[in-house]
């Protein structure tokens, strides 16, 4: 593998970190293979969340009254702010990929830093929402202790789905922050350029998917219940 990197240095090309792995015929095929791999991975993410969307659809169809009642206890202002935060983070991520495409190292650093900040904001807001629910006893299944509900059982199922969906989503945000940190460090080491930015693109695609999932979670859970 390193032999090709050396070859490029010998040819006087920029971006010494760049290399084509020995089993890829060309850099373009390597890039597109990586991208196809990421897209296939995103399929698995969609179907992972798909299980939760499926249970939401079924229980909503059964327990419409209970679900509508329960969803009024979610804070749609906080949820809306979080939606905006994630959309902004998607923008900065997309721009970070663009900056990497144009070999603008400094811009990549700034934009990835901003994306991280937005992600952290999202999780902080989520933390306040969660602690509020814990305080009110709006918890899944057997732990549901809030009073004054007409259909406490149905509300328990709603909050089971709410916590599973937003919890798994939050975990993905956390994992995304780890990945962004990883490419941020690699960028600081000067490893990316217009010729080699596949990891930035890949993490970007993942991050947009996290945003995509939330784009559906927010109206389903917070707005229509």
């Amino acid at each position: 593998m390193s032999s090709s990197a050396e070859a490029h240095v010998a040819n006087g090309e920029k971006s010494p970190q760049f290399h084509v792995a020995h089993h890829f015929p060309t850099a373009d095929i390597q890039f597109n293979s990586g991208k196809m791999g990421i897209w296939l991975f995103l399929v698995t993410e969609i179907l992972l969340f798909g299980g939760m969307f499926c249970s939401f659809a079924i229980f909503r169809s059964w327990y419409l009254g209970g679900f509508v009642e329960a969803h009024h206890h979610l804070d749609r202002v906080m949820g809306g702010i979080n939606t905006i935060v994630l959309i902004c983070s998607s923008l900065t991520m997309a721009l970070a990929v663009r900056a990497a495409q144009t070999t603008n190292k400094k811009a990549v650093t700034v934009l990835l830093g901003l994306t991280l900040a937005f992600a952290a904001t999202f999780l902080v807001i989520k933390y306040f929402e969660y602690s509020h629910k814990f305080h009110d006893g709006l918890l899944p299944g057997i732990h549901f202790t809030a009073t004054g509900f007409q259909e406490p059982r149905e509300a328990g199922i709603f909050f089971a789905i709410y916590f599973m969906m937003t919890g798994i989503h939050g975990f993905h945000v956390l994992a995304g922050m780890g990945l962004i940190t990883w490419i941020l460090i690699r960028n600081l080491k000067g490893q990316f350029s217009s010729r080699y930015y596949a990891p930035v693109e890949g993490v970007g695609l993942y991050w947009h998917l996290v945003d995509l999932i939330w784009i559906y979670l927010f109206p389903l859970l917070y707005l229509v219940g």
């Binding site: 798909g50 299980g51 327990y63 199922i157």
Partner: peptide, 28 residues
């Protein structure tokens, strides 16, 4: 396979915390 993943995850949560999605006594 990802659907198996979420299924087993839900089962683990059901067993550990009784979240109710699969439990008829809790409306699941």
């Amino acid at each position: 396979t990802p659907v198996l993943g979420i299924t087993l995850l839900l089962l683990i949560f059901e067993r550990a915390f009784q979240i109710g999605i699969f439990d008829p006594a809790l409306g699941g």
